[in-house]
């Protein structure tokens, strides 16, 4: 794009983000403050993820952008266009061929592989913020690994509801040291955070934080011995591809309680449908 640098950001900004990314990888799960820039997209719409992607992206990369697991949601389309325009990179929807996947709210169904990079858009990077609004205070708590507040919150949930009531953005411990927000992915996706061969990078633009999970790193969803972590999904099979294990969207079909369930991961669903058709 005329007048702008490759991938929009200027080189000094990229270097600043790159340095932060390297430290983020060296200290898994630790939120690193960075000089987040004002982007031509609104805060809260993926500016952190976009900055991370822009700092990592090269002309040989293949970029996939998803929102809610789908490649064709409007914000995913908008971000994909942004990079096609500013970096001229190839954009694809197939999870397996992408080298960088920027995501909001999902981890793809298909297992990621070594060498892939998953970039998360993060609205509120600090899992403690819901319990303690002051960042000065939560920074101190992370420094001391003082996470009792979160355990108390989970325990209160259990006494009140019988189990933990958090169903997305479920807090995790990374490498047994840092409490981390996995971004608002459904708890269903949490197990994929752990020991994933892909590099997972997290960018929060408005809150000006970057963090990371290196490949193969242990990530544990917080729980108790007598109340182990468990995930939920709609107890159905996908009405399009028949998958009975994937994460499903519930689609309202009429005003009389009619529902259908379809995979949230559009690439996963389309691939399965194509396979089925080929077999028939």
């Amino acid at each position: 794009m005329n007048g702008y640098n490759f991938a929009y950001l200027d080189e000094q900004t990229k270097r600043m983000i790159r340095r932060a990314l390297l430290k983020a990888v060296a200290i898994p799960g630790h939120q690193i403050p960075f000089g987040s820039r004002e982007m031509p997209l609104p805060y809260g719409w993926g500016t952190g993820g976009i900055q991370v992607t822009a700092a990592v992206l090269g002309p040989d990369d293949v970029l996939k952008v998803i929102d809610q697991g789908a490649d064709d949601t409007t914000n995913a389309v908008s971000i994909r266009r942004f990079f096609a325009r500013t970096a001229g990179v190839a954009t694809k929807t197939h999870t397996s061929v992408a080298t960088i996947i920027q995501t909001r709210h999902r981890i793809p169904e298909q297992a990621l592989t070594e060498g892939q990079i998953l970039v998360y858009q993060v609205p509120m990077p600090d899992p403690l913020a819901k319990l303690e609004p002051s960042r000065a205070e939560t920074t101190r708590m992370h420094g001391l690994a003082e996470y009792g507040l979160m355990h108390v919150k989970l325990y209160e949930d259990i006494t009140r509801f019988g189990h933990v009531s958090i169903s997305y953005d479920y807090p995790v411990m990374v490498n047994d040291r840092y409490l981390m927000s996995p971004s608002p992915i459904p708890a269903y996706d949490n197990p994929k955070l752990s020991r994933n061969p892909a590099l997972q990078l997290f960018g929060a633009g408005r809150e000006k934080r970057i963090y990371a999970i290196p490949p193969h790193t242990e990530v544990r969803s917080l729980d108790f011995d007598d109340h182990p972590f468990r995930t939920t999904r709609a107890p159905h099979a996908c009405d399009l591809c028949g998958d009975d294990a994937s994460y499903l969207d519930e689609v309202v079909t009429d005003n009389q309680g009619g529902r259908m369930f379809v995979c949230s991961d559009t690439d996963h669903c389309a691939s399965r449908q194509a396979l089925k058709e080929a077999a028939e």
Binding site: P42, Y43, Q68, H105, S165
Partner: peptide, 21 residues
């Protein structure tokens, strides 16, 4: 304004998890 207005972006994946819960 960005963060307030981002609530109008799709959140149906998270809402689905809330529904199930």
């Amino acid at each position: 304004t960005g963060f307030v207005e981002h609530l109008k972006l799709p959140h149906y994946v998270d809402f689905q998890s809330e529904l199930e819960t």
